[in-house]
């Protein structure tokens, strides 16, 4: 049905325009490389497009694209030829116009610390603290138990704390391993 196809394409374009930024930034936090982040975003949205006829609810779409992104990333980190997980002395960084020296330093330090966190723990932290998911939603996105989410969160935060020391906000640690329940 051509008109139906056109409508699907239009709806997908609207959804892509609305969510591209969030997905791309999440991907960047995961992998630390904008080009790789584009690859991950592309793979996630292609999967969404291939299933566009099945998923209509915006909430379900967000969860679906998140799951696609996470699984694509974790899958790639397990591939030998795509081992981009590497620790570099200095994070490549671009000034964003209104950066001051303090914020740049904080951002670079946090990005370096995030790179020290293993991929799965890092994804857990991103789900919990960047995307604002609770333990249950994070468990669904990662395809694991809620207990695993809590332990991965604790381990990830411990790694961050080890690198950042006092620079990591302490109150966050109190909430980190709690679920929404």
């Amino acid at each position: 049905m051509r008109s139906h196809e056109d409508e699907d394409r239009r709806q997908f374009s609207e959804y892509f325009a609305a969510r591209r930024g969030v997905v791309r930034h999440s991907a960047y936090l995961m992998c630390g490389d904008w080009h790789w982040a584009d690859d991950l975003t592309q793979a996630a949205f292609i999967r969404v497009a291939s299933a566009w006829h099945r998923v209509r609810d915006p909430q379900a779409l967000d969860a679906f694209v998140r799951t696609c992104l996470i699984r694509t990333y974790l899958s790639e980190t397990r591939r030998v030829w795509r081992r981009r997980e590497r620790v570099v002395a200095e994070m490549p960084d671009l000034a964003s116009g209104n950066d001051d020296a303090e914020s740049v330093a904080r951002r670079v330090a946090f990005a370096q610390a995030l790179r020290q966190v293993p991929p799965r723990q890092r994804v857990t932290l991103i789900c919990r603290f960047y995307q604002g998911l609770d333990v249950t939603e994070t468990a669904v996105a990662l395809g694991c138990s809620e207990g695993t989410v809590k332990s991965q969160t604790a381990k990830g935060l411990a790694t961050l704390r080890k690198v950042l020391g006092d620079a990591l906000p302490v109150p966050a640690l109190a909430c980190a391993t709690e679920g929404k329940e």
Binding site: H25, W34, T41, L94, S96, G132, A172
Partner: peptide
């Protein structure tokens, strides 16, 4: 902590080719 993630995610991304 969320602010730190936000800062890290918004570090002047290059234009997307998608």
């Amino acid at each position: 902590l969320r602010d730190l993630f936000e800062e890290a995610a918004n570090s002047a991304p290059p234009p997307s080719r998608l």
